[in-house]
Amino acid sequence: SDIKVHVGDITVELHNVSEEFARLVEEALRLGLNEEQAKEWAHKALH
């Protein structure tokens, strides 16, 4: 599904992702990663 993740003043739109993936992206953003890094990190975490 499509999910918007908000962290501080950052909003990341995720398309066709699981809630778990979105949660991992949100966690990575909170750790200070940028959007691209957060998506990559979440992807690796799920595989």
Rank of each mutant, 00 (worst) to 15 (best):
N34D: 14
H6Y: 01
S18Y: 05
L29N: 01
I10F: 10
E40F: 06
V12D: 05
I10M: 12
L14G: 05
H6P: 05
V17C: 06
K4E: 10
E36L: 10
Q37P: 01
A45G: 05
N34Y: 02
V7I: 10
H6E: 14
G32S: 01
V25F: 12
H6Q: 14
A28G: 14
A45Q: 15
E19N: 11
R30S: 10
G32A: 01
L14Y: 02
S18R: 08
L46G: 03
L31P: 00
S1D: 10
D9H: 12
N34E: 05
A42P: 02
E35C: 04
R23P: 00
S18P: 06
E27N: 05
R23K: 14
G32K: 01
E26H: 08
R30T: 09
K39P: 05
L14S: 05
V17F: 05
K4C: 06
H6N: 13
A28W: 02
V7Y: 14
G32L: 01
A38R: 00
S18D: 07
N16V: 05
A38S: 06
K4V: 15
H47A: 13
V25D: 00
N34M: 03
V12N: 05
H15D: 05
E35H: 06
H43M: 11
G8D: 09
V17R: 05
H15R: 07
L46M: 14
L24I: 03
A45P: 00
D9S: 14
L33S: 02
V7L: 09
V17I: 08
F21V: 02
A22V: 08
G8F: 01
E19C: 09
L29K: 04
G8Y: 00
D2T: 15
H15G: 08
K44V: 14
V25W: 03
W41M: 11
T11H: 10
A45K: 14
K4W: 02
E19R: 08
E40Q: 12
T11C: 04
I10L: 14
G32C: 02
L24M: 08
N16H: 12
R23V: 08
F21P: 00
V25C: 02
V7A: 09
I3Y: 11
E26I: 10
E40R: 10
A45T: 12
L24R: 04
L33V: 02
E26F: 08
K4S: 13
S1P: 11
V17L: 05
K44P: 00
V12M: 06
R30Q: 11
V5T: 05
G32P: 00
A28R: 01
L31D: 07
E26K: 11
E40I: 07
K44N: 15
E35G: 10
D9C: 08
W41P: 00
H6K: 12
V7S: 06
E20C: 04
D2F: 11
I3V: 13
H15V: 12
S1H: 15
V25Y: 09
A42G: 01
E20S: 10
A22M: 07
A28N: 02
S18V: 06
A42V: 02
W41I: 12
A38V: 01
V5S: 06
L24E: 01
K39Y: 12
D9W: 02
E27Q: 15
E26D: 07
S1N: 14
L29G: 02
N34C: 02
E13C: 04
A22S: 07
Q37Y: 03
E26Q: 10
S1T: 14
H43Y: 14
A28D: 00
E36S: 11
E40A: 11
V25N: 00
H15E: 08
L33R: 02
H43L: 12
A42T: 01
E35F: 13
V7R: 03
V17G: 04
T11W: 09
L14V: 06
V17T: 10
L31M: 15
K39H: 05
E13L: 03
L46E: 04
L29T: 02
H43A: 12
E13F: 01
L29P: 00
K4Y: 03
A45D: 02
V25E: 00
H43Q: 12
I3G: 05
E36W: 08
F21T: 01
A45N: 13
K39A: 04
E35I: 15
H43E: 15
L46K: 04
V12S: 05
D2Q: 12
A42S: 01
L14Q: 04
H15A: 09
H43N: 10
S1L: 15
I10A: 08
G8V: 04
L29W: 01
H43R: 12
G32H: 02
T11N: 04
Q37W: 03
A45V: 15
V17M: 08
W41V: 13
N34G: 10
L24T: 02
L31V: 05
G8A: 06
L14P: 06
L24F: 10
E36D: 15
D9R: 05
A38Y: 00
E40H: 11
T11I: 14
A22Y: 07
H47S: 14
I10Y: 07
L33P: 00
S18K: 06
G32N: 03
G8H: 08
H15Q: 10
R30M: 12
L46R: 03
R23M: 11
T11Y: 12
V7F: 14
V12I: 14
K4H: 11
V7K: 03
V12T: 06
V25H: 01
K44E: 14
K39M: 14
V12K: 04
E40M: 09
A45C: 08
I10G: 05
E27S: 11
A38L: 01
G32F: 01
I10H: 09
L14A: 05
N16M: 05
H15S: 10
K44F: 07
R30A: 11
R30V: 07
K44C: 10
V25G: 00
K44H: 09
A42R: 00
A38Q: 00
H43C: 12
V12G: 05
R23C: 05
V17K: 06
Q37T: 04
A45L: 11
E26V: 10
R30I: 10
L24G: 02
L33E: 01
A45H: 15
A38P: 00
A42K: 00
W41R: 15
L14M: 08
A45W: 11
E36H: 12
K4L: 11
A28V: 01
E13R: 07
G32I: 00
L31C: 11
A42W: 02
S1Q: 15
A22R: 05
E19Y: 09
A42Y: 01
D9T: 12
G8E: 09
A38W: 01
I3H: 15
N34L: 03
I10S: 08
I10C: 05
N34T: 15
W41Q: 12
E40V: 08
Q37R: 07
E36I: 10
G8L: 03
L31H: 11
E36K: 12
E36T: 12
H43D: 14
R23N: 08
